[in-house]
Nucleic acid binder design. Structure first.
Length: 222
DNA sequence: AGCACA
């Protein structure tokens, strides 16, 4: 059913309602940021809004791509259903400078909060101040010859098997993910062939599972 | 099933 006109926000439903909000948002962010920059992920657990989420992309093209690619994607044991959002997200209006509180139309629970918290540039600087391990030999593995097993590094602490499965699952030839007990930061992902592992590798190289952690993918040592 | 953002 071709219903709603393209929108840079994707509306998702049929999500697993048992997943807690922070985890849900993180996983959605990880899963969808492969299509392009994301402005916001909105998920509410209110009776009306549970099981649904909004992914706000910077570009409509990214949203369209996501819509086509992720329709029916198995996510926490349910198939996600995607549509374009019906209206413009606040994150978009804010970016365009057209954001209005629409006096009265929307619920105003209490005090009018006019000023949003300003991101201090100190915070922003701290966020980017993460040392990047360029040039200190940390990426010697880049030279390993292709094989069917990928080696993931720089994984954030909250990584779990399901998140990695969701990411790598979508590539042909996927076999399994192996986590290492006692190490949250590395994992192995196996494919049927080295061509298939190479394709997944280039697609997901630098993928941000969380906004601050870009994972690194190399081929495993044989 | 359910289209919000505090």
């Amino acid at each position: 059913m071709m219903d709603i006109r393209p929108n840079q926000t994707i509306y998702i439903n049929n999500l697993n309602e048992k997943v807690k909000k922070p985890e849900l948002k993180e996983s959605l962010y990880g899963l969808f940021s492969q299509f392009g920059p994301i402005l916001d992920v909105v998920a509410l657990k209110t009776p009306k809004m549970r099981g649904q989420a909004f992914i706000v992309f910077k570009e409509i093209g990214a949203a369209t791509n996501a819509l086509r690619s992720m329709q029916g994607f198995p996510f926490y044991d349910k198939q996600m259903r995607l549509q374009y959002g019906k209206s413009e997200s606040d994150a978009v209006s804010k970016m365009k400078g057209t954001f209005r509180q629409e006096g009265g139309k929307r619920k105003d629970p209490s005090a009018p909060k006019k000023a949003k918290k300003a991101k201090t540039s100190a915070t922003a600087a701290a966020a980017t101040a993460k040392p990047s391990e360029d040039g200190d030999g940390a990426d010697e593995a880049a030279d390993l010859p292709p094989n069917q097993i990928l080696f993931l590094t720089s994984l954030p602490e909250e990584t779990n098997e399901m998140m990695l499965q969701m990411l790598f699952n979508q590539f042909p030839g996927f076999k399994e993910v192996r986590l290492i007990p006692g190490r949250h930061d590395i994992a192995f992902v196996e494919f049927d062939t080295d061509a298939q592992s190479a394709a997944a590798r280039s697609a997901l190289q630098g993928f941000k599972i969380t906004p601050t952690h870009a994972m690194r993918i190399s081929f495993a040592k044989k």
